[in-house]
């Protein structure tokens, strides 16, 4: 555990909680992609199956349980409790175009051809692109609520901090996980355009809106 890793995990946690609170407080999931949230629930489910097979630390177990629990709570709020406010007409990204290729790639490029390891690999690849339906929704509506942009910012910062964590671990522990690193770089790059808008607009007090 190093400072980048801890800060990354906390940023990830902050993102998840910001989203849950936003939906709960406003009683609305307008502007939120339910599809991205289903993908994240799938990511956590397939990645944390090792909860059943190996114990790493209390911290590790606690965070995994919280991430999974929050992911399903978010999906529940979007598709059940506040279904009436769900922006289904704009949330039209075809997720099969992500899940199918990512599933194929997980079978082809993995550390070990075993069920748990393939599912872990699948989750890593899927996480790197799971935000695309959300970004697609924003590009369709042309705007995002400020609180939604805070959520996205925390989520992007989390993966960027993990990149620093991997640099740290490479130098000080000789740890090197090519699959996680490549997927993490891809994931971080997907947020770059958003980071730019966040810094130039949201941080200056303006609403994030895209030019028509």
């Amino acid at each position: 555990m190093n400072i980048f890793r801890l800060a990354g995990d906390l940023s990830h946690l902050a993102a998840i909680i910001i989203l849950l609170l936003k939906i709960w407080k406003t009683r609305s999931c307008a502007g939120i992609s339910g599809k991205s949230q289903i993908l994240f629930a799938l990511v956590f489910t397939t990645r944390y199956l090792d909860l059943l097979t190996s114990f790493i630390s209390l911290y590790n177990t606690f965070m995994k349980v919280v991430y999974i629990g929050c992911a399903y709570a978010t999906v529940y709020l979007i598709y059940m409790k506040f279904k009436a406010t769900y922006d289904g007409n704009h949330d039209t990204f075809r997720v099969e175009f992500l899940v199918v290729p990512v599933g194929g790639l997980a079978f082809l490029v993995n550390h070990d051809f075993s069920p748990l390891e393939i599912l872990w690999t699948f989750s890593i690849y899927l996480e790197s692109v799971a935000i695309l339906p959300q970004l697609f929704l924003i590009s369709k509506t042309g705007e995002a609520e400020t609180i939604t942009t805070h959520y996205l910012f925390c989520l992007g910062v989390y993966r960027a901090l993990y990149l620093f964590n991997w640099i740290w671990r490479f130098y000080f522990e000789g740890f090197f996980d090519m699959i996680a690193i490549v997927a993490g770089v891809v994931q971080t790059i997907l947020y770059c355009d958003f980071f730019y808008l966040y810094v130039t607009k949201v941080l200056k007090g303006k609403k994030l809106s895209l030019p028509a």
Binding site: D9, H12, D50, I56, N60, H111, S114, W120, D177, A180
Partner: peptide, 10 residues
């Protein structure tokens, strides 16, 4: 590294 012992990152 032993890949069967699980991944320590989240």
């Amino acid at each position: 590294t032993d890949k069967t012992t699980g991944h320590d990152e989240l």
